[in-house]
Amino acid sequence: MAVPRRIGYWLVELDRLITERFDEDLAAGGLGRRQWQILHSLSDGPQRSSELYAAIDAFLADSAEWDTELAAVVAGGLVLEDAGTLSLTERGRDVHDKAWVRIGARRRQMTEGITDEQFAETMRVLEKMVANMSGAEAAH
């Protein structure tokens, strides 16, 4: 008899699949995951570099990764940096928009058969679990 899989398994497996599939979709447009996060964060308009860093720092291995990825999108002509403010260039907007089509299709695939209410509840439950564990002390 198979042992039932617990939440840890499903969270890790979903994260692995999201990372794998989204990386494939982004690579098709010549982007890495962190570069996408920079472009997508700037798609609503310019931001201070420090604010953007704060928004995505949980995904970064360290501050050197931020420096590397930011330098790549600036050198690639996707992002303009002016006095600490970052914005998409015309080329950056085009690359973002094309990637967004692929990412949108992947997101729809991921949530197929899930109602908006189910998705919203899942998000609320996960957020609550994170909040519970963030303040949790080690079990003795």
Rank of each mutant, 00 (worst) to 15 (best):
P4H: 12
R6D: 10
R6I: 15
I7R: 09
I7D: 04
G8P: 06
Y9Q: 04
W10P: 00
W10K: 07
L11G: 08
V12G: 05
L14H: 10
L14M: 12
D15S: 13
R16C: 05
T19M: 05
E20Y: 08
E20N: 09
D23H: 05
D23P: 03
D25E: 14
L26D: 01
G29I: 00
G30N: 07
G30K: 13
G30S: 09
L31P: 01
L31M: 08
G32Y: 00
R33C: 00
R34E: 03
H40W: 04
H40P: 01
H40E: 06
S41G: 15
S41Q: 09
L42N: 02
D44M: 12
G45F: 07
R48W: 13
R48D: 10
E51L: 12
L52I: 09
L52S: 01
Y53G: 00
A55L: 15
A55K: 14
A58R: 11
A58C: 08
A61D: 15
D62A: 12
S63I: 09
A64F: 10
W66R: 02
D67L: 07
D67E: 15
D67H: 10
L70S: 05
L70A: 04
A72L: 12
A72D: 11
A75K: 12
G77S: 10
L78S: 01
L80D: 07
L80I: 10
E81Y: 05
A83K: 13
G84Y: 11
T85S: 14
L86D: 02
L86H: 00
L86K: 03
S87Y: 04
S87M: 08
L88D: 01
E90C: 09
R91Q: 10
G92N: 00
G92E: 01
R93S: 04
D94E: 15
V95L: 04
K98F: 05
K98T: 06
R102S: 01
I103D: 00
A105C: 05
R106F: 02
R108H: 07
Q109F: 08
M110T: 02
E112G: 02
E112H: 05
I114Y: 04
I114M: 05
E117K: 14
E117M: 11
Q118D: 04
T122F: 13
E127D: 12
M129T: 08
M129I: 15
V130N: 02
V130E: 04
V130Q: 06
A131C: 08
A131S: 11
M133W: 15
S134W: 13
E137S: 15
A138G: 11
A139F: 14
